[in-house]
Design a protein around this nucleic acid. Structure first.
Lengths: 206, 206, 206, 206
DNA sequence: TATGAATGAGGTTTCATTCAT
DNA sequence: GATGAATGAAACCTCATTCAT
C-alpha cells in the first residue's frame, strides 16, 4: 500500500505536533505563538501542520479536548466504585490538582491560553468543561439524594463553585513565581467546600 | 489660558472614550476591537484617544483599575462597621455579584477580555485583584481570630477559593445565552462557602 | 498701539524658534524632529511656530537661507578689495571652513539634514547655493581672464569641483567621532586645488 | 525537496525586487516610496519583499552595497596593471562618472536618497564608501611614494577632495533639468585635480 | 504525503497642522 | 498675538494559510 501511511505513523506525527504546540503556546502565549515554530519543533514543514489540524485554533481545541477527555475517563474510573459522594469529590479534585501539578506547561496553556477569546471560551465551556461540570453535578446530586449533602444549595451552583475554586487555585499556582505545591491545598480546599468556613462546636470538623 | 481645557471637560471626554471602549471590547473582544471604532463611538478623532490614554492596552488597564478601585472602596465601606465576618463576606460577595449584574457589558470585559494574555493576566492579578483578595483574606483572618471561622483552612487558600467560586459563577452568567439572575445565586453560594456541602443534623446550620 | 508687537520682539521670538530648530534638527535629524519639541525649547506653544514659519520645512529653509545669505555677504566683503583670484579663493574657502568649525551643530544640519529629500535639495541648490557657486565661478573667471588660472577647465566645472571638495571635507568632519580641526585642512586643500596633485620640478609651486 | 526554490530562481526574483526598488526610490524618494509599489512593480505580493529583504531600509542598503561592491571590483581590475598613478586616478574617476551616466535612475538614488538621514549616511560612509576612499588614498600614496605626486597634501585629504569633487559633479548632473554629459567633464576635472587651477608658463600643463 | 515559497489582509499610532477660544 | 486640544491621514510589516510541485 504505497503512499498510505499506517495509522501509528500518523498518530506519532500528530502527537509530535500537539506536544510542540503545548510548548510554544506555553512559552509565547496563544497569539504570540507562530505556527511556524510549532512546525519547526515538531520537525515538519509549515504546511504539514495543516494536514493534521484545521489551523492554529484547532491545535488548541484538540489539545484541550484530548486532554480533558482523558482526564474525565480517569476521574470517572476513580470514582466508579466509590459510594461516599464526599470521597468522590475528594478523588476528583485531587486528580484535577494532580494532573496539572504533573505538567505545569500544560497547566499554563489550560489555565490561560485556552481563555484567550470569548468565542473560544464558549466553545470550551460547552464541550468538555460542561462534561466535567456535569460530573461534579452528578456527584453532588447523589449526595443530596442520599441526604449527605445539603439540599438548599442547587447542585448546579455548587458544581460551578467547586470548579471555580479549584480552577482559581490552579491559576494562582500557574502565575506564581514560587508556587506552593498544589497537592498541599487539596485538603484545606476540601474542608472548606465540604464543611464550610464556620467553626463547629465540640467534636468539630473532620 | 486660551486653548487649555478645564478639568471637568477633560474628565467628560475621558469618560466617554472609556465607555465607548467597554462597549467595543465587549462586542468584538480585545483583539478584535479597533481603536477607530472606540473613537467613533466616543465622537472623537482617532488621535484624540491617544491624548487621553497611552494606547489600546491602556484603555483596558484603565477600565479595569478604575472600576475595581471604586468597587473596593464601596466594599470596604460596606463592611467597615460590621462585626460578624460571615456577614462581611456576605456583603462583599453580594456587592461583587450585584456590580456585575448591573452592567453585563462591563462584566463581559472583566470576565473575559481582561484575561486575554498571560502578560495582562499577571498585571491584573498583581494589582487591584490582589487588593481584593487581600480584603477577603483579612475578613477570613478576622473570623479565624475570633474563633468563628475554622482555623484549619489557611485564609490565603480560602480567599482564593471564595474568589474563584464567585468569579466562575459570574463567568458562567456572562457566557450564558439565558442567564439566571446572579443575585439568586448569592444565597446558595454563601451557604456553601460558610456552612459547607455536608448536611447538618437537626437544628443545623443557617 | 496695543496688540501690535514691536519689530524687535517679533524678531527675538523668531530667532528663538530658529535656534531651537537647529538644535532639534541636529539632535534628531529632520524627520525625527518634532515641531512640538522645537516649540518647547523656544518656550512657545505649538501653534505659535506657525505664526512665524509656514511649517516644519520652512524652518529648515529659513535656517538655511538666512545663514548662507550672511555667509555670502561676509565672503563678498572679504574678497572685495583683493585682486589675486587665488587669494580670493583662499579667503572664501577659509571662511567656509571656519564658519562651520565655529558651530558644529549648525554644520550638522547643513551638511546632512538639509539634503534629506530631492525636492528640498533642488530648492536649496537653486537658491543660495547657486549664489555661492556663482561667487566661486566669478572668482575663477576673473582668474582665467587675467591669465592666472588655466583656461582649459570650464569655470562652471571648476566651481563645482571646488565646492564639492570643501563640502566633502566638512561632511567627513561632521560625521567623524573625533574629527581633526577643519582649519588644518584648508592649506592642503588649497594647494591641491590651486596647484594640483602633480609634483613640480625645482623651484616649483607654492 | 518539493517547495524549495533553486538558487537562480531566487536570484532572479531578488533582482526584480531590487530593480523595482531603484525605480520607486528614484521616483518618489526614500520616504515617499511605498513597499507596496515596489512589490507591485516586481510582480510579487507585499509580503514577498520581506522574504528577500529585511525591510524597506534593507532594500536601500542592499542596493547600495551590491552596486558599489561591483564598482569597486571593476575599478580595481581597471587599475591593477597600470603604473602611473595619474592614469590610475583618471581610470577610476572615468569609471565612476561613466557608471552613473549609464543609469541616471540609479544615480539619483545614490546621490540623493542614500543620504536621507544621518544614521544612514554614517552607515554608508563607513562601509563601501570608506573602501572607495581607501582606493583613492592608496593611489595617491603610491603617487607620493614614487615622487610623482606632491607630498605636501595628505593623501587622506586629497582622497576626500577628489571624491567630493566627483560626487558634486554627479549630484549636479542628477539634479539638472538638462544636464550636460558627465563624460565631458572628466577631462577638465582631472586637469584641475592633477595640475591645479594655476596656469603654467611655457609649454603649459599636462 | 510533504514541502515551503508565496500570499495579502489588516490595524495601531504618530505628528504636522488647524482653529476655536 | 498666543494657545494647545483636536484632527486624521497614512503605511510598514507580520503571519496564518494556501497550493504548485
Amino acid at each position: 500500500m504505497p503512499g498510505a501511511l499506517d495509522q501509528s505513523s500518523r498518530e506519532r506525527k500528530r502527537g509530535a505536533i500537539l506536544r510542540a504546540a503545548v510548548e510554544v503556546f506555553a512559552e509565547r502565549g496563544y497569539s504570540g505563538a507562530r505556527v511556524r515554530e510549532v512546525a519547526e519543533r515538531a520537525g515538519v514543514a509549515d504546511g504539514t501542520v495543516y494536514l493534521y489540524f484545521e489551523g492554529k485554533e484547532d491545535l488548541l481545541v484538540s489539545l484541550f479536548e484530548e486532554n480533558i477527555r482523558a482526564f474525565l475517563m480517569r476521574a470517572r474510573r476513580d470514582t466508579d466504585d466509590v459510594d461516599d459522594p464526599g470521597k468522590k469529590l475528594r478523588l476528583v479534585i485531587e486528580r484535577h490538582l494532580a494532573s496539572f501539578e504533573a505538567d505545569r506547561t500544560l497547566a499554563n496553556v489550560f489555565q490561560i491560553e485556552l481563555r484567550h477569546s470569548r468565542r473560544f471560551l464558549r466553545k470550551v465551556a460547552r464541550g468538555q468543561v460542561a462534561a466535567y461540570l456535569g460530573l461534579l453535578k452528578e456527584i453532588i446530586e447523589e449526595g443530596v439524594a442520599s441526604g449527605r449533602f445539603r439540599s438548599d444549595v442547587p447542585p448546579e451552583v455548587a458544581a460551578r463553585a467547586v470548579f471555580g475554586a479549584v480552577d482559581e487555585l490552579i491559576t494562582a499556582w500557574v502565575l506564581a513565581a514560587h508556587p506552593r505545591p498544589l497537592g498541599e491545598q487539596a485538603g484545606p480546599l476540601l474542608r472548606l467546600l465540604l464543611e464550610g468556613l464556620h467553626a463547629r462546636r465540640v467534636g468539630g470538623n473532620q
